[in-house]
Design a protein around this nucleic acid. Structure first.
Lengths: 218, 218
DNA sequence: AAGTGTGAACCTCTTCACAGCA
DNA sequence: TGCTGTGAAGAGGTTCACACTT
């Protein structure tokens, strides 16, 4: 599967938009690449390079018009009309994810949640309707879901992923601490929380060894 | 700050260990690089390259002894004695994180949690004691915490990060959807859930455009 | 003068390919 | 023979540096 755009650029564009949205709400009109870079903890060149993908040009010596830039990033990142996501697993993590997304992006929203536990289904969490797993196929088709978040225990994740792929989902965001085997035509992003903490712990130790007195405090 | 080891290698080593632990429990004795690669969704060359960091050699035509490999990865990744982590923010996300880690790794554990909400403090969640924020400094020093997980709303994240850095934490795992400004001597990993879903949505659309009939189903 | 857009250099990580070993 | 360890090539992503614009 050819990837026309660097995965990392897409991630940063999403971040830029979030930062720009805030600036826009604060009444800011224009911004320079180096300012946006500061906010995003990147470099000016990086920002400009990323923005090449969206096809909106700033004006030399004037910077970027925030409102137009936000719109351009949206046109590039978002689906032309709407894109619907589903969540599987309404545990603590699932609820946290619903909260992150509740009414945030108009063109991408989590329209349905699923769980095996009858206690958790047939009600609304963070404005999202929860269904039993049996309803998966019907709801996915009816609501035109093409992206799903997996927030179930590791032992269930592969089964859930198989079901999702079978009903036509094209992208998965997996929070379960297990690798998924899925077809090439489905994009998967694995957010591995356990691994992330082990990584932080490792480099925290590295840093402490190299700079025990924290001379690098800025 | 010089980084002696690639960040990605460290992440994968953590993954390899998890996979190997499972195999070991299942009674498996040895493994080849290409088998481990399959389980980890990588390549054999990648696995061998990653293992160079830990300094344990397999035997040609015999593969790696799983028990020794697990021990070597542990010696490389883990602290010599113990490493303690703290969690700030005992909401849904925080509780999910505690569940992920509860008694998983003997040499790295979340020993304390903090929250501003008095309803959530002075009790135990997933075997982890919850303290009010005021206790942060005392507990961090007493328990020798050097890594922290931030699972608070975006509006609080920077303040919390500052407090954590001030009391000597050397690594942060940030789940809040906001960039943190922190000293160079502190390692930060940002897990941006919103961005992750937007990325998945984008590439799901890309894949769907390039392969509308899902011929790539393997 | 000050900032953008971008070719080219650079760097980092991944994959190839093969010598060496059991 | 079959697999490991690793130098070298390759791919992907980042930064430099500068022509160009206002």
């Amino acid at each position: 599967m050819t990837r026309r755009f660097p995965v990392k650029t897409i991630g940063r564009l999403s971040l830029y938009r979030r930062l720009l949205n805030r600036l826009e709400r604060e009444g800011r009109q224009t911004i320079y690449s180096h300012e946006l870079a500061n906010l995003a903890c990147g470099t000016a060149a990086q920002v400009r390079r990323d923005l090449m993908a969206v096809g909106y040009s700033g004006r030399p010596a004037h910077g970027y018009e925030i409102s137009k830039l936000v719109r351009s990033i949206g046109d590039f990142l978002d689906a032309p009309s709407r894109q619907n996501a589903a969540l599987v697993g309404v545990g603590n993590l699932g609820r946290a994810i619903l909260a992150f997304f509740a009414g945030r992006r108009p063109r991408l929203s989590i329209v349905a949640a699923f769980d095996i536990d009858p206690q958790k289904t047939d009600r609304t969490v963070q404005g999202c309707r929860c269904y039993p797993m049996e309803a998966l196929e019907d709801v996915v088709r009816r609501e035109d879901v093409d992206v799903a978040v997996i927030a179930v225990p590791a032992s269930e994740a592969q089964r859930v992923a198989d079901q999702l792929c079978a009903v036509g989902v094209r992208g998965l965001l997996n929070f379960a601490p297990t690798q998924l085997t899925i077809p090439d035509c489905v994009f998967v992003e694995h957010v591995d929380i356990t691994t992330a903490l082990e990584k932080v712990a490792f480099f925290a130790r590295q840093y402490a060894q190299e700079d025990p007195d924290r001379t690098a405090i800025k």
